[in-house]
Simulated scan of single mutants.
Amino acid sequence: MKKGKFLYLDAEDKTAYVEMDGNHQIEKSEKTPYYIESTVEWVDDCTYIMTMTKITIPDFPYGPGDKMRVDITKVDGKIVYYTSTVNGTSWKGRFKKIHD
């Protein structure tokens, strides 16, 4: 998970993805020009804290400086299961690794 391109499997936008490069992450969609840029601090191999630094999505509920904790709960081949928590709200999701 520390490096690569990951497609969101549970997002409404089926083109939404994350590009992770160690301590930097960007979330994008192939449908819009908007994105979220974040710094990443790895707590351990299965947990990281993502600090949002730039958000271009209109009316996005979080802002620069907000921190999201991501716990990787399971890896099954190229599928990564996770739980994310930001500002007291948590949700579960899945990524599929599509590129190293």
Rank of each mutant, 00 (worst) to 15 (best):
I57W: 14
W42N: 04
E30V: 09
E27G: 13
D21A: 11
S84D: 14
K31N: 15
V40Y: 02
V80M: 10
I26K: 08
E41R: 03
L7T: 09
S29I: 11
V70G: 02
K78V: 10
P33W: 01
T15Y: 12
R69N: 09
Y8H: 14
K2Y: 05
G77Q: 06
H99A: 14
T51M: 01
N23R: 10
T47V: 15
K92P: 10
Y17S: 07
P33F: 00
K31T: 14
Y34M: 03
V18R: 09
Q25L: 13
D10A: 00
N87C: 14
L9K: 10
Y62R: 09
C46T: 15
I26S: 04
D100F: 06
V75G: 09
P61K: 09
I98M: 00
A16S: 15
I26E: 02
N87P: 06
D100R: 01
V75N: 10
P58E: 03
W91M: 04
T39G: 05
I36D: 07
K5H: 02
D66R: 06
T15R: 03
T85E: 14
I57P: 07
V75L: 08
T56E: 07
K67I: 05
K74P: 02
M52T: 01
E37T: 08
T89Y: 14
L7G: 07
D71E: 15
Y34A: 02
G63M: 03
G63H: 04
M1Q: 11
V43P: 14
E37G: 04
L9R: 06
D45V: 12
K31P: 07
K78A: 13
K54Q: 07
H99K: 12
Y62V: 08
K5L: 01
D71T: 15
R94M: 13
K14V: 15
V80P: 12
S38N: 03
W42A: 00
I49H: 07
G4A: 01
D13G: 04
K14Q: 15
K96N: 00
K14A: 15
K67F: 06
L9C: 08
V40P: 00
P61D: 04
K5M: 03
G63W: 00
V70P: 03
T85A: 04
R69A: 08
W91A: 06
F95W: 15
Q25H: 05
T47S: 11
K28T: 11
D21R: 08
S90D: 06
K67G: 05
F6L: 01
S38V: 02
E19R: 06
I26G: 05
I72P: 12
F6D: 07
P61F: 03
F60W: 12
Y17W: 10
D100I: 03
K3W: 01
K5N: 00
E30P: 09
Y8E: 13
I26F: 05
G63D: 07
V70F: 06
K97W: 03
W42C: 08
E37V: 07
D71Y: 10
G88V: 12
R69E: 14
P58K: 05
I57L: 10
K96W: 01
V43A: 12
K78N: 15
Y8N: 12
I36W: 08
V43H: 12
K31C: 05
K3M: 04
V70A: 11
T32E: 02
